[in-house]
Design a protein around this nucleic acid. Structure first.
Lengths: 223, 223
DNA sequence: TCATAATGTGACCGCCTGGTCATATTATGG
DNA sequence: CCATAATATGACCAGGCGGTCACATTATGA
């Protein structure tokens, strides 16, 4: 699960870090804009001002470059989510959901193109090892919220007429859709999430979580 | 809003209906599999057993063919949704939501490739007139639920601490995500929606709507 | 200094793309 | 029957793709 998808060649590892980073950045940018299949290695080397031969000294082929980019993406996401939750109270199921949502927003703000790569993978058919890539991100979400939901259910903090896995589905759907809307303006259902001020965004998140609370907590529980 | 995006050439209109339909079907299939940019006209004519020159006698170019396909898609969707709601009680906001969800499922079942085309458009960047295309579908949803939500709010059937447009966002997000999960197995958050029996699917839909009800109705209202 | 290894280069390859057009085939109606 | 219009065809074009490779350049260390 935590193994890397692809290793670059030794030549790439030997590169000075700043050059490595600029190459990854250019690749992310190209994959974000065009998805996997339409992304052009010619474009990438042109942006970087290096020759195509060099790129092939760093990575075996287009697929290896792409998988390397995706490895970076998943590592970053997991780091963001884990960092956001430690410290805050882990007992409040919906509080954790709120934290994860905020972490997602923060990630998109600081790595907008990485998130675009992910969205492209979701809806492009012939991406190499696509199922595996998507599973890495989504299973992370399910594995993360699943146990939390089970525990909350055990403690009577969730409605018992809805199975825990369905609670996770609803939560996951809401969070994912919110982040998609934030990243892609025309997906936000008229909420104008994209480019919203941090304060107003917090309000949106709070009311979103409030609805989840009301809908998913046992009916007697106070707010 | 209801004007067509693109007209085929007269030669196409003159074709016998079954040939027209087979051409549209082949185009839908190709666009569904590869999205707009990677879809290949060569593939389409190969499948159909016609020459490329013929295709260009029917449509000005790739874009016109694609827009014609999308026109068909939007017309079908609107027809499905409208047909599903007439007859049932229009007063129950969440009942309507449930009907629309069922209509979406029915549409995907009978036109799976059309829905794939739509999903591809959502996440592909350089689709011609993409914003306009997406707006046609999403605005339909907003324009459809917006007034319903306003009315329900006026009748005190919705929580008054959440603005109506936010209610619409939540509803839209949930419906859309549910349909995406139904159409793309790896998006369903572990619910295994795809290929689910009709009965179990209805259960999933009912509990989804139940959560929405509980979360969005005024706190005193019964279920 | 110099042999060797590591790295950089871009012309080139076969393949596929959307699109064109001169030509062949078929339908039409006087 | 035949002239004309409508339609069908596929070889062809320029351009872009991922990938290769013989060669040029640079770094290394004895």
């Amino acid at each position: 699960m935590d193994t890397l998808l692809a290793q670059p060649k030794q030549t790439f590892v030997n590169l000075p870090p700043e050059k490595r980073e600029s190459i990854v950045r250019a690749a992310v940018s190209e994959f974000a804009e065009h998805g996997y299949q339409r992304a052009s290695l010619n474009n990438i080397v042109k942006r970087l001002g290096i020759s195509k031969g060099s790129l092939y000294q760093y990575f075996d082929n287009k697929e290896a470059l792409f998988l390397h980019v995706f490895d970076h993406f998943t590592l970053q996401v997991k780091w963001y989510v884990k960092a956001s939750v430690t410290g805050s109270g882990r007992d409040d199921f919906f509080g954790v959901a709120r934290q994860v949502l905020l972490a997602g927003i923060a990630f998109i703000d600081s790595h907008p193109e990485y998130f675009q790569v992910y969205l492209k993978v979701l809806f492009e058919r012939d991406v190499p090892r696509r199922e595996e890539l998507v599973a890495r991100v989504r299973l992370f979400s399910l594995e993360y919220f699943g146990p939390l939901a089970d525990r909350a259910m055990g403690q009577g903090l969730l409605r018992n007429d809805i199975p825990a896995h369905k609670v996770v589905f609803i939560l996951d759907a809401m969070l994912d859709r919110f982040l998609q809307g934030y990243a892609q303006p025309y997906l936000d259902g008229g909420l104008a999430l994209a480019g919203m001020s941090a304060g107003r965004l917090d309000d949106e998140i709070d009311s979103m979580v409030a609805v989840l609370r009301t809908g998913l907590q046992p009916s007697g529980t106070g707010e």
